[in-house]
Nucleic acid binder design. Structure first.
Ligand SMILES: [Mn+2]
Ligand SMILES: [Mn+2]
Ligand SMILES: [Zn+2]
Ligand SMILES: [Zn+2]
Lengths: 126, 126
DNA sequence: TTGTTAACGCGACAATATTGCAATAATATT
DNA sequence: AATATTATTGCAATATTGTCGCGTTAACAA
């Protein structure tokens, strides 16, 4: 199943690349110049996520946030992101924290996905 | 605003205490002997969460999970839970990982809540 | 230019959670 | 024990988020 290049897709990718913080559907739709259907936005985002181009984070608000992958090891088959995200309770921005975490699991446990989120106030909003 | 003791409340608390894993609304309702309204269940759970009796975790599925507080430092005003939760993708159980994490935030950042979730397969389901 | 089908738009649907309001019942007060 | 106060509940309505089916559109290859 080969991917095709569409305008909506390109624009969404550009927005995510330019954004310093993770975006949810609402925020993304607000930034789009032309109207794109909600279902389409989700389908594009999930496609990106499946392809490992962006990562998906569930916020404390239960919403899905998407962030463009930076400094990821592209060569690895296993596309993992064991870092925390920080969400500012005032300005709302959600950003990646550089430091990679490694959690020791109990014996016999295997890890598939990592989702680390810290809420608080950023330096601008403290 | 003083709290009152009700039967539903007590039963839900007991269920959470007895459960080794975090529960969401569905799981809880299934365990209740008598029918309790959905809204009431959520109100009870959020009350517990506000009071620091249970902690709330947002799963990868976007649902709210609640777990009774164990080995928490009751004396602290600041009720923090800087530990990960593990959710098994097969059997669905969600449990606390003992190890407490401490994440270093960028300068000027302050932390309010911690939400760490790892999905994978537990020793029974590997 | 034409054919194939990935991607889209639209509407319906599902799932989760919250809210307003009247009724109920836990607790305090008399 | 009887009564008053109001926290809590049940119910229905509503909000919010995300998915799905399906007919149409358009990207890409032949
Ligand atoms: Mn990445
Ligand atoms: Mn606790
Ligand atoms: Zn901020
Ligand atoms: Zn399991």
């Amino acid at each position: 199943m080969k991917r095709r290049k569409t305008q909506s897709q390109e624009e969404i990718l550009t927005i995510l690349k330019d954004s310093k913080s993770a975006l949810n559907h609402d925020m993304l739709q607000a930034k789009l110049t032309k109207k794109v259907d909600r279902a389409t936005i989700y389908r594009i985002l999930n496609r990106f996520s499946d392809d490992g181009i962006v990562h998906k984070v569930i916020g404390d608000d239960g919403k899905q946030y998407f962030a463009f992958c930076l400094n990821c090891d592209e060569e690895k088959k296993q596309h993992t992101h064991n870092h925390f995200h920080f969400k500012c309770l005032k300005c709302g921005k959600m950003e990646c924290l550089k430091h990679e975490i490694d959690v020791s699991l109990p014996k016999g446990y295997t890890s598939e996905t990592f989702n680390g989120l810290i809420s608080g106030y950023c330096s601008d909003c403290s």
